[in-house]
Amino acid sequence: MHEGAIVRSLFNIVESYRSKAELKEVHKVKAVIGELHQVVDEFMSMYFDFMKAEIEGFENAVLEIEKRYPVLRCDNCKETDILKEAVFTCSKCNSGRTEIIQGNELYVDSIEGC
């Protein structure tokens, strides 16, 4: 379960921004996670809740996760397609020269607090 390591890194970022913004309390952390990452949202939330209990000012914080579905663009025929299964060749021309244009995200979007 690598979600623990991901949430640890998330807290490092959030703490650094919280300190710069002089927030006493953090109410919400929003993360954007592409579906190509094999991350289980429930485990992310579970680790977030475990770790927030150790940090002052996070008592009421919630983790909001925005998922992004994967989108593939073909360099050959320029077709853009939503990926429904793990097949990364072009559904129109079968070319292997494709590029993921959405679905690889793994970042902290924003934090809210006071």
Binding site: Y17, L23, L106, D109, S110, E112, G113, C114
Partner: peptide, 17 residues
């Protein structure tokens, strides 16, 4: 205390990377 929203836009695994 006034509510603040802070845009972060930072890769979670940036230190590892």
């Amino acid at each position: 205390m006034s509510k603040k929203g802070i845009k972060v836009m930072k890769k979670i695994l940036n230190i590892n990377d």
